[in-house]
Amino acid sequence: MTLAGLFALWLLMSGLFKPLLIGFGLASVLVVGWITSRMDAQDGDHLDIRLSPLRLAGYLLWLLAEIARANWSVMRIILSRRMPVRQHLFRVPFSQKTDLGQVIFANSITLTPGTITVETERDNFLVHALGYDENDDEALAEMDRRVAQVETAGGV
């Protein structure tokens, strides 16, 4: 399964279908599979993806709109003459259960300009904001809710 995926990636990246190149592709796919299985025996670290694809797509669209809005406000700060910076470091609680959900939330916070996840704690993120105002907490709480909805409990 994984090997087939890797081989498809090779074909997409090379776009050439000569026997020699396909042979190279097969060889490298097999070598990678062998190395990965050795590494897997070493630490047994697994990532199970428990996200619903449809909701993830919806979330990404919402995130794009959010990024556009945040970009606009950061752009106004950068281009204005006095640069009305209002820096603040604050805690944001998260409610995602899986590691992957938390990573998506933290990365989304960092991806929207104006807020950056600086540190992760047991059930909070430390977030640094460039132009902080009191609505930011509410906006981040909504993002938290939306990421938590993307997660599916128990791989449904």
Binding site: I67, V74, I78, M83, L111
Partner: peptide
Amino acid sequence: IGSLGLWRLPDFWARLHGASVTESA
């Protein structure tokens, strides 16, 4: 605009946000 922010903003913590404009938009 992002690299301008990286240049103009007053300190390191603010410059992080300038760089993230380049990186996202």
